[in-house]
Each structure stands twice: as C-alpha cells, then as structure tokens.
Design a protein around this nucleic acid. Structure first.
Lengths: 258, 258
DNA sequence: CATGATTTGTCCGTATGTATT
DNA sequence: GAATACATACGGACAAATCAT
C-alpha cells in the first residue's frame, strides 16, 4: 500500500548482514524469520507504509533460500501485517483511518482529527431522475429531478472514498456551483441554510472494487470497498441528502460508538 | 446464491419460446434482453433466490448466440440484480438481512425479526493467552488467560457469520460448557449473571474471504467478508466480551441508526 | 474418493454496420 | 470517398468450478 515513499527501504536495511537464523533448533526457519520481522514491525523499527527490501535481498540477509523467506512473508501477509503488490514491492501495512459513524459525521473533521490532511476533488455533478431507492430515501416521487454530486476524498493525498450525494433538485438549486466554489460540502450546504444536517441512518455492505473504483482509488486488483449508504436530514429529521460512499476498506475502519 | 431451491427454474421457464427479440431496431439485442429479464425480476416473476435457466437455454429462448446473452447477464450482474457461480448457475440476488448495530445487538433476535429462523453451531472453544488487541479491549494484562468461543451462525440454515468471542477466563468459568448446553450465548451469560451485556463500541472493516471462511460460510471464490469487532460490557460499561464476527457481505447489510 | 456431467468463464476467430477522422 | 476505430453479433473450443453418482 501507500503511495508515499517507495525508497524508504534504507532505514531498516542497514541491519547488519550475516545475522543468520538459527538452524537445527527444531523451530522452522521461516517461522523464526516471520517472528523477527513481526517484532521489527510492532516495535516500530519497520514503520507503517515502509517498503521492505526485495525478497532476494531479504533471503540473502537471513541466509536462506528465497522460498523459505516467502513462506515467512506469507505468514505475515495472512496476519495482515504486510502487503505485497506484484511489481511494486512489499510494504508494512498502514493503520486504517478510524472513521466514526455518528449523528454528525463529516469527512474533513474526521480525517483532520486523525492528524492527516483532508482534501477532495469534484468528479462530476448532474441532474438525473430519482431511482426507486433514492426517491424513497429522500421522500420524493420516483423519477423526480435530483442533483447528483460525485466527490473523491483524500487524506494526505491518498484517495480514501468516492462519495455520491443526491439532493432534491428543487431545494438545492446551484448546489453544484457552490460546491465547486467552496470546495466543501458542509460549507456549500451552509450557504443554502442547511448547515447542521445530521445523519439519520447508515447502511453498510462490502464487495470487491470494480474497475472504475480501482482506478479512482488507485487500488490493485482484488481489493475491497465498503459501500456506506446514509440518509442525512435537517434539524426536523427531514431527509435532505442521500449519500453512497465507497471506502477503500484497507485504508478505513468504520467505528460505531454505542 | 441461496442453497434453497435449485430446481425453482420451472415457474419462469414456462415462458413461451420463440418470443424472440426485435432485430434491426437500433436497440442492441443484449440490451433488450437485459431489460426484459430486469423487468421480470423487479415485477416479481423471477423471485429472489430463484435460479435462471442455463445460458444455453436462455440464448435459445431469446433466439441469440450465447455471447449475446452473456452480454445481457453481464449488465445485470453489474447492477447486482443477479449473481452467477461457475458450475452452479445464475441466481436472482436475495435481499440481505438488515442487521442493526445498536447497544443491544443480538444475532437471534435480529434474524427472527427478519422472519427467518436463527440457528448456531459451536465450532470450538479453548483457553488461550490474550493477544495485545484482546488484552486492551478487555482491560486485562497481555497474555492473561482468556476463553475463546467460536460459533457459526445461520439464518434458515444459510450460514451468515463466523463469530469468535473472547472472555476473561477468570470471570467466565465453564462458559463454554454452558454454551454447549444451552446453545445460546445470551442464555449462557445470563446463567453467569451477565444477562444484559450491551455493546460499547463496534469497528468495521472488510476484506476478501479466506480459505477457511469460504468453506465455513460456503462461499464461492472472490467473495467478501465484513469483519465486525465489538466490545460488549456490563451495566457499568466494564468490558466483559470481545467479539470478532466475520459476516458474509452478500447476505448481510449492517444498519446504524442515529 | 474418483469420475463424469453440468454450467459458467475465457479465449480464439470472423463478419458486419456505424461513426469518426 | 477512404481509412480507421468501435460496438455488435455469431461460432467454436476449452478451462474451471460444482454437483451427483
């Protein structure tokens, strides 16, 4: 993972070579290696997002065959401590953003509280007829005009979620223009006098990321998105916004406090 | 999906053959076919869980080549109206169980309220040393004895989730025996005077199902599980149970009410 | 446990009409 | 008009997964 710092190998790779692994102790070599790398990760010598040396280099350092080393990495992959992408390398997994789902759920606030820099890009917006699902959520007749706004949201420049918002087109004239101008959903809605929308209900499923999601979220094949649908309402709990956000599940952990 | 009624083809397959699709109208054949099947689904002639005829049969019925038919099915798959598994067939997707996550979250109550029959099987239980994560959740020292109980939970005989529970081994002597005897987590905890545990926090991620999960939940390859970790506490909000449940994401939709 | 039948998934190729350059 | 690209449709073959025997 992490499109951050591909050359961050150096820090850890200074480890003195030749500190081989203990043979003939009854403990499998790959297990010893896995445990040593794991210790390096949990004790912080291998930081999250950091790239490990290539399998060849690691094998040489531990004085084992590449297959033996791969067995160790396989164990760490299964435990989800590291992650390998063909062609890029093997990386220490970064801890996911803790994303609390509550009555007041705001992407930028949540990301900022995690100490990361939120940003967003408007992908597109248009008027479309309400599908059955959206009509029901917004208490509109089916086929009524709704404004759809698609956003890509990032933390520290890493894409986190693709969010589609639907609004009653009547109530939200020019919201798309305001969005483009302010760059913030919250601020744009404030301008329309809908500042303190609150979340009424959230529905969560998950599925493999499709082609477009992989491209937009820069995900390798086989990755998973969590699909979070939510209905947001005004102070009187009247629905004003329906959202479907697709979160890259590697980079986000949803939290519900009870 | 659905291990229910594989021979449920008949109801729909009586449709008169020879009602071919309109050629040379400017509308692609595969699009016409997709729309007709979609109509059959949304209007209930093809019920959820029902198996469609084979691709060969469908192609013959609509008077097109198998590839043309597959193009239509691909569209319906993308819209998540149907789902195909090699060797089994193509099925109309069943609506997922709506699974509310709240302070009082009980599997059997939730499933029963959906009008389905809950059941559960004890997979195993043992004492093990607390990992860092579990120790923190249960406010125990790391390595302390914890009781781990693994359950497979089903609705109408269809596996829904694999749940692992961890308890302080001190406080929960013989919980595993009670579980085996009563067959209910709730009732077993009641016997220990911990009847009204409530959920304190829930964390949600998702990932591809691994080998064991696919086997236990009878999932075909490429399917996804939602990993739901929760801390449950007693009336004083002292943590007494840590749970990691892996839900088949096709069959469940998590709901958060705010 | 092995095996074969059934069914979906993927690949090869060919041909045709339409829109764009 | 010619060249090109693209979507549509058809045909055949085989791989891979599942299920019943």
């Amino acid at each position: 993972m992490s499109d951050t710092d591909d050359s961050a190998v150096t820090a850890w790779s200074e480890a003195e070579p030749g500190d081989d692994v203990a043979r003939g102790t009854g403990v499998a070599l790959w297990k010893q290696i896995a445990e040593r790398i794991e210790a390096d990760i949990v004790e912080g010598r291998l930081a999250p997002g950091m790239r490990l040396p290539t399998e060849m280099e690691l094998a040489e350092r531990f004085g084992v065959n590449r297959h033996t080393l791969r067995r160790a990495l396989a164990m760490l992959t299964e435990r989800r401590l590291i992650e390998a992408t063909p062609g890029r390398g093997t990386f220490v997994k970064e801890p996911p953003i803790r994303y609390p789902i509550g009555p007041r759920t705001r992407f930028s606030e949540i990301v900022a509280r995690e100490g990361r820099a939120p940003s967003g890009r408007l992908i597109g917006s248009r008027i479309e007829p309400a599908s059955a699902e959206i009509a029901e959520a917004l208490h509109l007749p089916m086929g009524a005009d709704v404004l759809r706004v698609d956003l890509l949201r990032e933390a520290d420049g890493v894409p986190i979620t693709i969010a589609s918002h639907w609004y009653d087109a009547e109530r939200c004239r020019d919201l798309d223009l305001l969005l483009a101008a302010t760059g913030s959903v919250t601020r744009a809605l404030e301008t329309l006098g809908l500042g303190d929308y609150r979340r009424l209900e959230t529905r969560i499923t998950a599925r493999p990321a499709d082609e477009e999601e992989r491209r937009r979220l820069s995900l390798p094949a086989g990755r998973v998105v969590m699909v979070v649908e939510s209905i947001n309402g005004d102070a009187q709990r009247r629905p004003i916004q329906y959202t479907r956000a697709r979160f890259c599940s590697d980079r986000v952990q949803l939290i519900v406090k009870n």
